[in-house]
């Protein structure tokens, strides 16, 4: 696989193949990230499309080879937050449409059902968290961003990001515990 730095350089020179390679490498993770943040797959696809479109129109915006994943994740998070602010209805979007399109990685039907159910529970619980906490959790766990990177994106201190993560995590653990007990 070509190094990100070379792909970016080729993209800046107008290589469509370079874009395809970058897209193939990162699109799934970005879709997952956006879907987790928005709880809405259609919205996630739009967000990812917007992020890539804006980037190819001005590829010079990104100039740190090696951090492309983090940078794209940040773009996705920013775009999701914009959408969230504009459209409050997204905050309570049902997750059914997301659930039936999750990528199944198990072969046994029984395990598939169990996994689907588990994903549904986690997605539902995530969606009930305040957006900042959900964003922190998702960026940390799915986006593999550091607290410093998340803090920069959220324009807060790294400590605040860490607190959001811990509050979110505690709440999520309680919610998942309640579901099991219920």
């Amino acid at each position: 696989m070509l190094d990100d730095a070379i792909l970016i350089w080729k993209l800046r020179s107008g290589s469509k193949e370079a874009f395809r390679l970058i897209y193939e490498q990162y699109a799934r993770d970005l879709l997952t990230l956006a879907a987790s943040l928005l709880g809405c797959p259609a919205g996630a696809e739009d967000v990812v499309q917007d992020v890539f479109t804006q980037w190819v129109q001005a590829p010079g915006r990104f100039r740190r080879p090696g951090n492309l994943r983090a940078w794209l994740s940040t773009c996705v998070a920013n775009r999701c937050r914009d959408l969230q602010r504009k459209d409050h209805s997204l905050r309570h979007t049902a997750v059914q449409s997301l659930e039936h399109r999750v990528n199944r990685q198990v072969d046994s039907p029984v395990r598939m059902v169990i996994q689907d159910e588990d994903i549904r529970r986690v997605s539902r619980a995530l969606n009930t968290l305040p957006y900042e906490q959900r964003e922190t959790l998702v960026l940390r766990v799915q986006g593999n961003l550091t607290f410093r990177q998340i803090a920069r994106l959220q324009k807060v201190s790294p400590k605040t990001s860490q607190s959001r993560y811990h509050y979110g995590m505690d709440k999520l653990r309680c919610l998942l515990d309640e579901e099991v007990n219920a």
């Binding site: 107008g14 469509k16 874009f19 395809r20 897209y23 699109a27 799934r28 879709l31 997952t32 879907a35 987790s36 797959p41 996630a44 696809e45 990812v48 499309q49 890539f52 479109t53 190819v56 129109q57 997301l98 399109r101 999750v102 990528n103 990685q105 996994q115 588990d118 994903i119 986690v122 997605s123 995530l126 959790l137 998702v138 766990v141 799915q142 998942l176």
Partner: peptide, 25 residues
Amino acid sequence: RIRGIQYDASPETHDKVIGSVLSAM
């Protein structure tokens, strides 16, 4: 479990997104 959430769009959707972005390019 959060990591286990994997979302993927359909191949048609991917093609659509790629086509749209390349056209913008």
